[in-house]
């Protein structure tokens, strides 16, 4: 009862916070609006709603942790015991992925390169999108690869996790183990895949470096900041995966809907086209998409040699934490019922 009251209070508090944000930043919280000049009240409302939701989820998570300190602690202790199991699962996934293929693990590097060739042919030769105008180094290939790596990670992590609980039914029904291991393991597996396809990016980066398309300066060191968006995006994908994997247990529809949603999501993110190319109104809409912020951050440090702004950092952290919060709350609420439905 007390918990419910606290959650209600948290909601009111975050509502006030969201309205406050909209009032304090009449140009919309997302900085980009200010420089496009196309500000409408609609966007203030949207950003107010988003900020309310995010802060509400975060407060709820805090309340949840506070009320279930023992449970969270137990989960963390359990992880220590089952980490070998997780490593085993990841290595098994990698082994089965490349079973009976001649090139094996090289496919992880080769695949992005081939995709890059196809899309470069279409977008830079046929449709003539020139990204170097917007300050991205290396032209379309590097531009595409950097977006592809992030999106592919999210899509793999969620697609694998979606069925992870259902697939593990044999184990869950017979042996006790913390159930979050399964979506977490799938995210780690997708993260390994992402690191491998990042090699493709590095190869292309070196090619352009030798060609002289990338200025050799200290800006290149900012590249190492790439671990920051990678970490954020991992947390984001983990939260999403926790939510989706538990939803898929109760409603198998999610399995079918998600692939449709993913393709929509891909076109609604600046992966194959640059954000700067769009009309101001569309740009605003895309700012609502969390993925836009991650990809933007990623490209900013990798192929622009710029330091990320405070806004970029704040948005990435907030979206990651909010996704993790939603995932954790949904998963923990339902995890004891999984066994009755799988």
């Amino acid at each position: 009862m007390k918990k419910k009251l606290l959650i209600l209070a948290a909601f009111l508090l975050s509502l006030a916070f969201g309205i406050g944000i909209a009032y304090k930043f009449p140009n919309g919280y997302f900085k980009i609006l200010a420089d496009t000049g196309a500000v409408s009240w609609k966007f203030d409302v949207v950003s107010c709603v988003i900020m309310t939701l995010i802060s509400f989820v975060l407060l709820w998570l805090l309340i949840d942790i506070f009320f279930d300190k023992k449970g969270y602690k137990r989960d963390i202790v359990a992880f220590k015991k089952y980490r070998f199991f997780m490593v085993d699962l990841v290595s098994r996934d990698i082994k089965t992925k490349y079973r009976r293929s001649v090139l094996g693990v090289f496919w992880s590097v080769l695949n992005p390169l081939l995709m890059m060739l196809v899309l470069t042919a279409i977008f830079s030769r046929v449709l003539r999108i020139d990204v170097t105008n917007y300050g991205y180094w290396g032209g379309y290939p590097l531009f595409y690869l950097s977006g592809y790596v992030i999106f592919n990670f999210i899509s793999e992590a969620t697609n694998f996790s979606l069925v992870s609980i259902l697939q593990a039914s044999g184990l869950i029904k017979k042996v006790y183990m913390p159930k979050y291991i399964f979506p977490l393991e799938k995210c780690c597996y997708a993260f390994v895949n992402m690191s491998l396809s990042f090699i493709a990016f590095i190869i292309m980066f070196c090619v352009y470096l030798f060609k002289g398309d990338i200025p050799i300066s200290t800006d290149l060191f900012k590249m190492f900041l790439v671990v920051v968006p990678m970490f954020f995006v991992f947390i984001f994908a983990l939260g999403l995966s926790l939510f989706l994997s538990s939803a898929a247990v109760f409603f198998r529809d999610v399995l079918h809907l998600w692939s449709v949603f993913l393709s929509l999501w891909m076109y609604a993110s600046p992966i194959i086209y640059p954000l700067d190319n769009l009309s101001p109104a569309l740009k605003n809409v895309l700012r609502i998409n969390p993925l836009t912020h991650y990809i933007d951050y990623f490209r900013c440090v990798l192929i622009k040699g710029e330091l990320p702004t405070l806004e970029q950092n704040v948005m990435c952290v907030l979206f990651s934490l909010a996704a993790l919060g939603i995932g954790l709350i949904a998963f923990r609420k339902k995890q004891d019922k999984f066994i009755l439905y799988i």
């Binding site: 085993d88 098994r92 184990l171 042996v175 183990m177």
Partner: peptide, 19 residues
Amino acid sequence: AGFDFELTTRENIFLNGSV
């Protein structure tokens, strides 16, 4: 419980241990 029927005895012993 905790066996993967595709894997060999050796692999299963370690898998079951980690389970």
